[in-house]
């Protein structure tokens, strides 16, 4: 019993220690590096908790893209000033937190362990899997049973990119580094083909196992970001039709499917059973393209990419 608990204990202690140091590291650079490490540990926790889809997404997004995002932004900010320690502020914050979160903590501690695992209800997902068109449960939920979530999530990405574009006119000409680190260039040459390969595999694999549009899109975006940072990829001009088209492709196909299923079929996003598999694969492919391009623009987008 205690031996089984050991890996969980190690992961939990690591998680808390790294989270603490990511917040309170002495320099901002250390804080950002530790936050990337935090993302990696969270990915391990997802793997331990039986969520390989999440582990893949977290490793690509939480540990990879967020790190690049933070480091690139921090380049343009001044060094943070030294912190003054104010006891009253800290005490106030602590009291507020204890009061705010204690209800939830108590509701976890009070019931006995048996109560927490007792309700082994049969999941309705497993019962409906046969007419979903795919064989992996998480993909079925994302693109069939709760396709609304995925549709709205693509819209959130569109909103983010629109908001980002609005904020650019304030900025002066960006400070793109003239020199690129030689090691980064050669690593990029090695890694990007691999990332493309793995991304494509994850997209294809998503219908029957862990993987799918989000993970594949995040990996492709990581490849594009590396190419863009090293200057091997020219700026993705917003004015070009290809960029705009691929940004909107996923949402548009989703919308068309929704309208068609509403007017011809059973209802909004209620796919006809015979074509569900093909439809899901098409939507996933275009969604991957959209997610990859939008994430690239969000992470590595400069004035040249977004406002020309």
């Amino acid at each position: 019993m205690t031996v089984e608990l050991l890996p969980d204990l190690v992961l939990c202690v690591l998680l808390l220690v790294v989270a603490w140091s990511a917040l309170f590291a002495s320099t901002r650079r250390d804080a950002m590096a530790l936050f990337v490490a935090f993302g990696m540990i969270v990915a391990l926790v997802w793997a331990r908790l039986g969520a390989p889809d999440l582990a893949l997404a977290e490793a690509a997004i939480g540990a990879g893209l967020t790190g690049v995002l933070l480091l690139r932004a921090a380049r343009k900010l001044p060094v943070s000033s030294a912190r003054r320690f104010d006891y009253r502020r800290h005490l106030g914050a602590l009291t507020f937190i204890v009061v705010a979160v204690s209800g939830f903590a108590v509701s976890i501690i009070l019931p006995s362990p048996a109560d927490i695992t007792a309700n082994n209800i049969d999941s309705p997902v497993a019962a409906a899997m046969s007419d979903s068109g795919v064989s992996h449960q998480v993909t079925a939920v994302l693109l069939n049973f709760r396709a609304w979530d995925t549709f709205l999530e693509l819209l959130v990405l569109l909103f983010a990119i629109t908001g980002l574009r609005q904020l650019f006119p304030i900025e002066k000409e960006s400070l793109e580094p003239a020199r690129t680190w030689q090691l980064l260039v050669s690593w990029t040459r090695t890694l990007v083909p691999l990332l493309l390969l793995v991304g494509g595999y994850l997209l294809w694999r998503g219908s029957s196992g862990p993987g799918g549009a989000f993970q594949a899109g995040a990996l492709l975006a990581a490849g594009c970001v590396m190419l863009r940072i090293t200057g091997m990829l020219p700026p993705l001009h917003w004015s070009s039709f290809a960029v705009r088209g691929s940004v909107c492709a996923g949402t548009l196909l989703f919308l068309c499917t929704a309208v068609l299923t509403h007017s011809l079929g059973a209802g909004w996003l209620d796919y006809p059973e015979a074509h569900a598999g093909t439809l899901i694969l098409m939507i996933e492919t275009l969604a991957t393209l959209s997610i990859a391009i939008i994430l690239t623009l969000l992470v590595a987008g400069e004035r040249k990419d977004l406002c020309s």
Binding site: G50, T66, S123, V138, L298
Partner: peptide, 28 residues
Amino acid sequence: ARRQDPPDPILHALVVTGLVVAISATAF
């Protein structure tokens, strides 16, 4: 989600969506 033996896929799907929303909010 891990309380059931095959973990609950609905919660997993929600968190996958949440991750992507989190990074777009962070970028913004």
